[in-house]
Design a protein around this nucleic acid. Structure first.
Lengths: 185, 185
DNA sequence: TAAAGCATGTAACCGGTTACATGATTAA
DNA sequence: TTAATCATGTAACCGGTTACATGCTTTA
């Protein structure tokens, strides 16, 4: 099956959730989507251009007072259909994350145990930070009384982040013990 | 801080664990490392070449009977030092996995609930497959009586895969319920 | 007046994949 | 004899990042 460029669908999707400029999309992604997706201006603007060329979106130039002009993009019916079609396709393959901590652990036989444990500790604290960030965003969304139709779905993706992060943290703790036992032997 | 090319360290690491040809490395990675790292021949061979140029490895041409000639690579003391140095550096940033299921869920507000649940089911079954694969590899390593010094570290990385995969599976089940409740309201 | 935020864009680069090319040996 | 396994390699391509360029407005 042909490879898919998911980035365009991400942008198409954002067009349906109230983000109409490249700048606004970038803000949104950096703030709320970045636990499972990120994107740079170098992708956003060319993609928006291409979406218009393909008839999936339309541009409207709008000049604002006190702010620079901006290009507002809107999804077309064809674009909506394309998005819906993609949403229905089952995922083909699980993502594999390139994890450099695991890569290091894999080759840590000749390393000093305490050094390896340091790696684990740093990793754990970063996971903990991440966990708190996600929990914070979740709180924020839930306390926002304006109950958008999108919010339950946003919460779901956050929960994914929370539960896998938690599992990874538990693993850190367990692994630390394993390494210490290994050393004692 | 400058960006790092982890691939070269992966290859350097493999050189220390008994894999001396590009072909053998590829086999190894596809079989045992692929839950957190993968690599193509298009990277392996040029990287090996570069490692030699940098003085981190040495080549030895060996002709075998009944098999094609091969190039055997060996790590040099400088290479070992480079590797050890990298192993000691704490990881800078957590990997963020691009997850297209989450991307779809994020925009699934306008989708049919049962369709979304289908996505979750497929995902769950793939996770389950992955879990079994990891569990199988772990069994295999543990039952292999030749107790290499590397094995505890390999088990640790497998455990990471097992526990995060399990967490993701639990999330699938929970999310399915959430979606059904949402529909009933 | 300087920094921060709003806003759009591109060119160079880089890591990585895919497809292709080659060729020997061995087992079905 | 055909497929599978062993073995090495490259060129084209692609997705994505980074650095750079521009310019306006608001706030400190």
């Amino acid at each position: 099956m042909a490879k898919e460029n998911y980035t365009q669908y991400a942008i198409l999707g954002l067009l349906t959730t109230g983000y109409h400029t490249g700048y606004a999309m970038k803000q949104m992604i950096d703030g709320s989507l970045n636990h499972f997706w990120k994107i740079s201006y170098g992708q956003i603007y060319p993609t928006l251009k291409r979406l218009v060329e393909q008839g999936f979106a339309e541009v409207k130039l709008s000049s604002q007072e006190g702010k620079p002009d901006k290009k507002e993009y809107f999804i077309t019916p064809t674009g909506e259909e394309t998005l819906r079609n993609w949403l229905q396709q089952p995922i083909q393959e699980l993502p594999i994350e390139k994890n450099d901590l695991l890569l290091k652990l894999f080759f840590s036989r000749h390393q000093d145990t305490y050094n390896t444990i340091d790696l684990l500790d740093t990793y754990h604290s970063k996971l903990s930070e991440r966990y708190n960030t996600y929990a914070g965003i979740k709180e924020m969304i839930l306390s926002d009384l304006c109950d958008q139709g999108d919010t339950p779905f946003w919460i779901i993706t956050l929960d994914y982040g929370l539960c896998t992060t938690e599992a990874a943290m538990d693993w850190c703790v367990k692994t630390k013990e394993t390494l210490l036992n290994l050393k004692e032997e």
